[in-house]
Design a protein around this nucleic acid. Sequence first.
DNA 1: CGTCGCTTTGATCATGATCAAGGGATGTGG
DNA 2: CCACATCCCTTGATCATGATCAAAGCGACG
Lengths: 260, 260
Amino acid sequence: VRPPPSEAQPRARLPLTLKVARYVALTPDEASVLADLQSATRSIRRNQEFLSEGQRLGDLFVIIEGVSIRYRILRDGRRQIVNVVLPGDIAGVPGCFFEGALFSTKALTDSTVARVSAARLVGLLETHPRLAAKIFFSFTCENEIYAQRLIAIGRQTALERTAHFLLELLNRLQVVGLADERSYRLPLTQELIADALGLSTPHVNGMLRQLRDDGLISIEQQRVTINDIEALSLLADFEGTYLGPFSMHDLADDGKSAGQ
Amino acid sequence: VRPPPSEAQPRARLPLTLKVARYVALTPDEASVLADLQSATRSIRRNQEFLSEGQRLGDLFVIIEGVSIRYRILRDGRRQIVNVVLPGDIAGVPGCFFEGALFSTKALTDSTVARVSAARLVGLLETHPRLAAKIFFSFTCENEIYAQRLIAIGRQTALERTAHFLLELLNRLQVVGLADERSYRLPLTQELIADALGLSTPHVNGMLRQLRDDGLISIEQQRVTINDIEALSLLADFEGTYLGPFSMHDLADDGKSAGQ
DNA sequence: CGTCGCTTTGATCATGATCAAGGGATGTGG
DNA sequence: CCACATCCCTTGATCATGATCAAAGCGACG
């Protein structure tokens, strides 16, 4: 009864074009420029830290495949994961514009990324300013993910937080076609979940177990299944509306008038 | 011994132009468009909630003067403040592009804001796309503030968090010229600080008292003074580098070449 | 003078951390 | 093919940080 390990891959290679396209409408021309940006891909091995705190780097990485974490380790060893980086996300922004990156980013699985030089992105300001604006705008959407997580970590109980985390990942993975209706593959250990949620590993273990005992979720191997999305959302006070796709489509349409 | 209440105002009315200018270089033309955007100001009374959760609103607000909070209240009454909104910040993004705002925003003090219709901002995509890109980019910078706060709330002790919070505000207020070298006026009650840090009011009280007893800070009336910035930064594991101004200046210069 | 909003303090309680150890699966070298 | 090692999950006992509840002080303001 060994499940095929390559379960998620056959799912047609996504026309990811950076997930920007999920957020805003692109002209064909823009789409092709975007595709071109991601042309040169590179492989990253599991556990490789490809962006390091303090590093002054002029590159960003569009994640084509694989899961990474963005984190920081405090002096005494405590670690906080500030983001789980999924395919379609961009790593290295705005670190590449600051003096040095503020966080490290490490691949959890073997990954494929497209390296884009910051200079080239900024060059878009000149050559395709509207595309540049759309890309930058798409970065803004991450704000809501962070804000939402701030609430979870700041004011929700361990159980609620855990539920929230699982739902957030479900939604984000669905956006890029890596999750089906109720389940997805989650390459995170409980220790990593703990560091993302500001909890201890044993306690995360207990919370997951409780969610399982209550029949809200199932976990086997690395596959998470949400059995009752509604109940879990209620528990977590979760609304998926903040995770794409949404309505800048209306506004930033092609050559049409912008004044509504 | 009543300190003049209008202490901070005489400090020349800032050429705030939205704080965008702190982050990126603007051409004179862009600067004037930006100034124009903020021309029509409006007053907001203390305690007025000018952006409400769930509200579908096509406007954003550039804060000219006053302090607001962006927050959400959970079903059982717990409140988390996700951001303290200072002059120069923009409220309502990207809420205005989502189905509905995800958080409420409320003025803590009487405020002056400039209302900008989202349509107008999007219109910039057509008329001044490079300016639009720069504005959107400036939104991205907030990500780092959120990420930093996630670390504080997720993995730092109450004392460290409190120290971090005070330092963050010092730095952010300095950027817009509302704090001097070591002190600033803070219109937040301890209850509000607690809701921003995910702590209880009595505990915030204790932490502030401890910081005071240790001689690291002083608080009188609403004025916070950091007596030993270095020591406090060490305690909080704080580095101010993530709060502008930083170096997209190099990249996005006027008509110059972008490829470095 | 009295109320209201905020700060301060203390006593008790609980959520979740820490520490420690065992268990199960997978992988690797002998 | 087995022994061992590694990584991760699981469990339990104890501890501590910070929450909750309650109440008193203290200005500012009307």
